[in-house]
Design a binder for these strands. Sequence first.
DNA 1: AATATAGTGTGTATTTTTTACACTATTAAA
DNA 2: TTTAATAGTGTAAAAAATACACACTATATT
Lengths: 218, 218
Amino acid sequence: MLSFFTVDCLILTFHEGQLKVLLTERNEYPYKDWWAIPGYFVDKEEEMEEAVKRISYENTGLKDIYLEQLAALAGVKRHPEGRILTVAYMALVRYEEVKNKVKPITNYMRQAKWFGVNDVPELAFDHNEILRLGLKKLKTNLSFSFAPFELLPEKFTLTQLQQIYESILGESLDKRNFRKKMGNLGYLKELDEYQTGVSYRAARLYKVDKRKFAKLFA
Amino acid sequence: MLSFFTVDCLILTFHEGQLKVLLTERNEYPYKDWWAIPGYFVDKEEEMEEAVKRISYENTGLKDIYLEQLAALAGVKRHPEGRILTVAYMALVRYEEVKNKVKPITNYMRQAKWFGVNDVPELAFDHNEILRLGLKKLKTNLSFSFAPFELLPEKFTLTQLQQIYESILGESLDKRNFRKKMGNLGYLKELDEYQTGVSYRAARLYKVDKRKFAKLFA
DNA sequence: AATATAGTGTGTATTTTTTACACTATTAAA
DNA sequence: TTTAATAGTGTAAAAAATACACACTATATT
């Protein structure tokens, strides 16, 4: 009589100027050998978000990540053994923090790999739809979401921030106008620090003032 | 091994200048005698949206209504017999079309009644949270959603439209600025018809040009 | 030392959008 | 015919968004 269902976790990051999604190659029926979004069954006594955190930890080695619920999908035919409802979440992670940790710790997945979001094969179940929902939500909420900063290191350059906006919106933005607007928002703190290790003029670093950000959207 | 879950359907309408929500008084354990959002179990072979339509039909007598999925809620303790996942939907209906039909056809509910959304008692389960999610979604998506027109008759006055915006946003708007902006959007068709049955100057009626609307948000 | 490369950093003019604000017109009922 | 209720309308100022071009800095390569 209890609910029996799965969670799927769309894990996105930003690297090499584009949004990337972490996919795993399934090693289990159904859709064996297909690429899929990480996901698994929720334990009977486990809160749904805990399950998502567990699954994303197993795949990225990260705890305490940014999560948003996307949707519940429950098509009668989505699983060959009969309807299995899934609740899809989206997680945003910083590439620098995960790049050496990514590997599926479970044995029901063969390998994990980052794919550019525009370069994703046909996925198991309705996982292409979940990706579509995640990208749409990112885009729709961009102007009042903390999401862009979840994809960046604590200290970042305005060019990095602009690249994230551009890849979420799918269009290029004017540099001067972008900086003017970001400045006007008032929640970016200009630091007296600069990029290191670049072979060109080092850019100034910025931080988000989380208090001011939170106050704006309270 | 199949998923077993419920759907809940937040049914909203607009009447007497305010948003109203349809609540039913439960006649069944748990939360017997509490007010609740209409909802019930999804049949094994039934698509989730079909279940929502069935439930909203049982409560409003209407078919073909506007539906949006809000969220899945699955707290381990939300049901005393153990975790029951629910998928919450929001339905928008026209008061004129439902006012004489509203009554719960099922026997697990005692009565159905419209409540102003700011005048809702403590509800069964996590239903106050579902209401909150629905109102937030309405507000967030207002500027690119067809929702306002789902609450109005096919032909409506600009004052009616403004009242809907005002109650969704929770603030009052300037009449001239509102009309200017609506005019600029370009999807309202001015008709050569006027209100009837009012004891003051009759207002002009308008329609939405659905094609133009769809084109704008494609 | 010269050159190529790549990304940083800045200002202004134009257009568009938003905001603030008050009176006249129409109708039905008293 | 007066009253009450709501419909309907324009303009100016401010703010925000957009379009647009060039010089600067650091490094790597030859």
